[in-house]
């Protein structure tokens, strides 16, 4: 059953990579309430910073955190300058982040050109697990994803920061009474989400290369992860949503055409939204 274990492995790695990509979006949407249409551009930015950094002779392992920091800082500046004035108007934040997407994508092309840039695989070679094969680097990226998700879970449920964040999610006014500086918290959330997007972009760049439109390809899929995973249930929701979207597409496309598989999975996500508007894992409505 080589083929079976291969499907399982590909499904698992696909799920984790999508979860990694979607995590930044889920953080900004779930905690900040902003539907970040600029998420795709942040991914792209992360990949390009990684590529540019490597071109200057910096080793890949150092470029990844640099990309995360650079994109995080850009996100922070954008939040401080623009987004923070619009938290009470979700549609406006959506438009603003779309403007960010338009501007960032174009700046990327002007600065770095339009060519697809290949980022060499830092860990060449394949690994075989129970008869199924994948790249060593893919396994490492999945490991990083698991680590990040665990860290997010720890921060959210085992630290005082997490308690405050959850308090703020439940009741904004109560949180401010408790002395939580909402403004700073939102800045931090946005910057963290941006940094996560940059980190994801950097990490997936050796797998998919850097091209100016790479972000829009992932953006829609990430949105579906958020649909299926639901608001608030950050770690479990993102993981489950990714499994539905990524694993679902792969499994369905084994039996039918790729196109039909994609349609079925997207329809499935809408169905999940209808049955469990707050996500697969969430039982209590957020509001």
């Amino acid at each position: 059953m080589d083929s079976f274990s291969q499907v399982i492995l590909d499904g698992a790695t696909g799920t984790l990579i999508l979860a990694l990509v979607a995590l930044g979006l889920a953080v900004i949407f779930g905690l900040g309430g902003v539907l970040n249409l600029g998420h795709g551009a942040m991914l792209t930015l992360g990949a390009y910073v990684t590529w540019a950094c490597q071109m200057h002779g910096v080793p890949f392992i150092a470029c990844v955190p640099i990309a995360a920091v650079v994109v995080g800082v850009i996100g922070l500046l954008f939040e401080l300058a623009v987004v923070r004035h619009f938290y009470d108007r979700p549609f406006e934040t959506l438009l603003i982040t779309y403007a960010f997407y338009l501007i960032a994508t174009q700046v990327i092309q002007i600065v770095w050109g339009r060519a697809v840039h290949n980022i060499p695989n830092p860990l060449p070679g394949n690994v075989t697990i129970a008869g199924a094969s994948t790249r060593v680097y893919t396994i490492v990226v999945c490991g990083v994803c698991i680590a990040l998700l665990s860290l997010t879970w720890l921060v959210m449920y085992r630290t005082s920061v997490g308690t405050r964040l959850r308090a703020m999610l439940q009741n904004r006014e109560m949180a401010s009474l408790l002395g939580i500086d909402a403004s700073r918290t939102y800045s931090a959330i946005f910057a963290t989400g941006a940094a996560l997007a940059g980190l994801a972009g950097a990490l997936i760049s050796p797998l998919f290369s850097a091209s100016p439109d790479m972000g829009s390809l992932w953006l829609v899929r990430s949105f579906f992860v958020v649909i299926a995973g639901g608001l608030g249930a950050l770690v479990g929701g993102t993981l489950l949503g990714s499994a539905v979207i990524s694993g679902g597409t792969d499994v369905f496309s084994l039996f039918t055409s790729q196109v039909f598989a994609q349609t079925v999975v997207f329809a499935l996500a809408i169905l999940i939204l209808r049955v469990r508007p707050e996500g697969l894992l969430r039982k209590v409505p957020a509001r």
């Binding site: 998919f208 899929r221 990524s246 597409t249 084994l254 790729q258």
Partner: peptide
């Protein structure tokens, strides 16, 4: 616009 080719590769 396909990003995942797992099914095809199988």
């Amino acid at each position: 616009g396909t990003a995942q080719f797992g099914g095809l590769i199988e």
